[in-house]
């Protein structure tokens, strides 16, 4: 079974965040990590490979330096990497990103394409469904469990309340939520081996797209300005257990909640 895991490079959650002059999220090379949600994506790809064999390809669209981040997925165990990188890609919005990933997936071919439920930079969670639309395939989204058997992928889908069971024929696209597994840490051996694993680079032309179909040129949304948010809180502090419950009840009454 050929598995492609789509992983985004994001700034680490603890990195200090800033906008660039043209209102994009500043992405510093030293802060770059695998989107934390995509650690689950990669882990699920590896687990499915353990069951069904085949190859796991880590696919990422990002700057040329993202090869180092792909290397971390290879250290976890993915067989090879594919980086779609092109100067014309800068400033891509979610739909353009999906167009690019769909074109790359088509070129690679797959039985199973895995996504995370969102990227930790903008919390969109829209790329997987848009990729599915571009490919004309079903998406099994927000999977908390994935089983593949008899040419079908079957998931337990995390719904707003509880779970739904959904299935689709392969080739299938699946996005996973973090309760699906516990991502592994790369082993020393994995890190050593990752250095020898191939990472191919695709340009936009390589996947049959032209510059107007992605990047800032195709973006349909624009950030105009940003301002810090100040919230006014009452900030009353009550010390000690004694009388605390009474104070809370009184507070709820003052606020007309009780």
């Amino acid at each position: 079974m050929n598995i492609v895991v789509c992983m985004k490079e994001t700034p680490s959650t603890t990195a200090e965040k800033r906008f660039t002059a043209d209102m994009r999220l500043e992405r510093r090379k030293e802060d770059a990590v695998i989107n934390p949600f995509d650690e689950y994506t990669i882990e699920e790809g590896l687990r499915q490979q353990e069951k069904h064999g085949g190859e796991v390809i880590a696919l990422c669209m990002g700057p040329a330096t993202a090869a180092e981040t792909i290397r971390k997925a290879l250290a976890m165990g993915a067989d090879r990497g594919v980086l779609v990188t092109d100067p014309a890609l800068a400033g891509s919005d979610a739909i353009s990103t999906a167009r690019v990933l769909a074109a790359a997936l088509k070129k690679l071919g797959f039985d199973l394409a895995l996504f995370g439920s969102a990227a930790a930079d903008a919390y969109g969670g829209v790329v997987p469904a848009a990729v599915a639309e571009f490919l004309g395939l079903p998406l099994l989204s927000f999977a908390a469990k994935l089983d593949i058997a008899d040419g079908k992928a079957r998931i337990e889908r995390a719904a707003e309340i509880g779970y739904q069971v959904a299935e689709a024929a392969t080739p299938a696209l699946v996005s996973v939520v973090k309760s699906i597994n516990e991502p592994r840490y790369p082993s020393m051996k994995g890190i050593m081996q990752s250095k020898k694993k191939p990472i191919d680079t695709f340009s936009l032309a390589d996947i049959g797209l032209d510059a107007g179909q992605a990047g800032a040129a195709a973006a349909r949304e624009r950030a105009m300005s940003a301002s810090p948010v100040a919230t006014q809180r009452k900030g009353e502090i009550y010390n000690g257990n004694e009388g605390a419950a009474d104070r809370i009840v009184a507070f709820l009454v003052e606020q007309k909640v009780l």
């Binding site: 965040k17 349909r220 949304e221 105009m224 300005s225 301002s227 810090p228």
Partner: peptide
Amino acid sequence: PAFGGAQSVKTAFTG
């Protein structure tokens, strides 16, 4: 909201 709600970004559509 961006950066965990610390900033608030104003956006518009183009096209």
